[in-house]
Design a protein around this nucleic acid. Structure first.
Lengths: 261, 261
DNA sequence: ATGAACCCTCACCTGACGTGAGGCGCAACC
DNA sequence: GGTTGCGCCTCACGTCAGGTGAGGGTTCAT
């Protein structure tokens, strides 16, 4: 009687999905067969359901998770925006990861030359920013820098070595949340805070900012092998002017505090 | 006695890994503790193992899978190349997916205007290429086009409408492997093969080639709702010259065969 | 001695299916 | 009317790199 009903295999070919996918979507209530034989459990679909099935396949090929697909199919507007944002930041993260991986392949696992330096305490003004995870540190840092340089109090800044204002990034050693990134700007007069001095293990990073992890890891390995745990945040001193230097030649001092001595 | 041994928690802080990760790596044999208390099962690590642990964390942050991390740490050269290639193609796929998703968000789920057209049989020369999966179709197609246009037999080509040589892509409806993509070039005289004519469901795609899926899905939905299964490969007729048209304005005819009638 | 912090194993959860086992159902052919 | 072969069913387990929690033992400092 129901000659316009298709078995799951026929429908799968029509919709370019696997039988397993269709069963899974049925189980989730995302696409229920038009009829299910109560005795045998056989699923039967109408040809008209193929549009829905194809839409699921299309959205899945765009990496939209099934719960969001369900929202889209039920007509919820704007359900895709969160997915889009997530995919975009994931894409950006992967872009950086690939570039860094290529550098690791060229240079080998990082092993920087480590020096011990002594730094005086410095008066600074700071801007803090919360990062939602390790992958968000890059965004948080540049946001903090922008806020700091836009502050009117930044008029009284030092001009160390003639290289423009001296910025120092401060990053917690522990990656557990909440992750607070701080950027400090060295001032001439007394600042709102004093960045403590002391001795540091330091290494020079040459290359894009998003590959600083390589040098930081080498530095942390150096410290760890000596059983030293950093008593404060890792510092990055931005030596080059990113507006005038190509990313591959940017020079950054990376420093791990060793103590006040 | 062993005062230089660290508990798993201390070592985890030093290496910026979670305790769970360290236990997992122990289980996999990737990073075994220096000593395991036989009575209590407590794991103890040497500070010197931190470099290894940090390297694992670094490579994991670059999306290198743990088995490959193990190879790298055991000194296998070139172990990363396969990973790099995989990450690169995945990155490219995600780039396309994001652009397509943004178009879906702007235009809604695809619903193209479908016409029924009749096409004559045409003499053609063809180039075939294997694709290793749905994500590889773009590469395979452009490889086939390049091979076809480099063929010396392409001298006798038609110049339909003055728009240069007429290329037609042929893509199987089923996405199961092996996936063979073919590209046909219409010739004036008798070709090596004859592309069968018949009636087709056709829709016009405007936009980049990697978003043709949108129009194809709309077309397949149209066919599926009428219970029609394509008896041959889907055709794409490239109307615009990709060398002279920006990707957003490229025009392509997408056609699903309906039969010989 | 006691409490806090630390550590152990075991078991189950994530997403979106793929794979395979073991067992019926269905259509067609002889 | 039997048989063959394919299609369909459910159930259970694997993927990957861990996270989460239960329930219980250990270590260390008061």
């Amino acid at each position: 009687m129901h000659e316009d009903l298709l078995t799951i295999g026929q429908f799968a070919r029509l919709a370019r999905l696997s039988v397993k996918q269709l069963r899974h979507y049925d189980e989730l209530g995302l696409l229920s067969p038009a009829r299910v034989d109560e005795l045998t459990g056989y699923r039967y679909y109408r040809a008209g359901q193929a549009r829905q099935a194809l839409s699921i396949g299309l959205l899945r090929s765009l990496d939209v998770p099934l719960p969001v697909v369900a929202q889209v199919l039920s007509g919820t507007a704007g359900a895709l925006e969160g997915v889009r944002a997530g995919l975009e930041s994931e894409l950006e993260r992967r872009r950086r990861a690939l570039a860094t991986l290529e550098r690791v392949m060229a240079d080998g696992l990082p092993s920087a030359q480590v020096r011990i330096v002594r730094e005086p305490a410095r008066p600074v003004v700071v801007a803090a920013e919360q990062a939602s995870g390790p992958g968000d540190i890059a965004r948080a840092t540049s946001a903090a820098v922008a806020r700091l340089l836009a502050t009117p109090a930044a008029g009284d800044v030092g001009d160390v070595g003639g290289g423009g204002p001296q910025l120092i990034g401060l990053f917690p050693v522990e990656l557990s949340e909440p992750l607070t990134v701080e950027v400090a700007l060295v001032t001439d007069g007394p600042g709102e805070r004093t960045l403590p001095g002391g001795s540091f293990a330091a290494a020079t990073h040459v290359g894009p900012y998003d590959q600083i992890d390589l040098t930081a890891h080498a530095l942390l390995a150096w410290c760890a092998e000596r059983g030293v745990a950093a008593p404060g945040p890792i510092r990055e001193v931005y030596v080059s002017d990113p507006a005038r230097t190509p990313p591959g030649e940017l020079v950054t001092q990376v420093m791990v505090p060793l103590g006040e001595a």
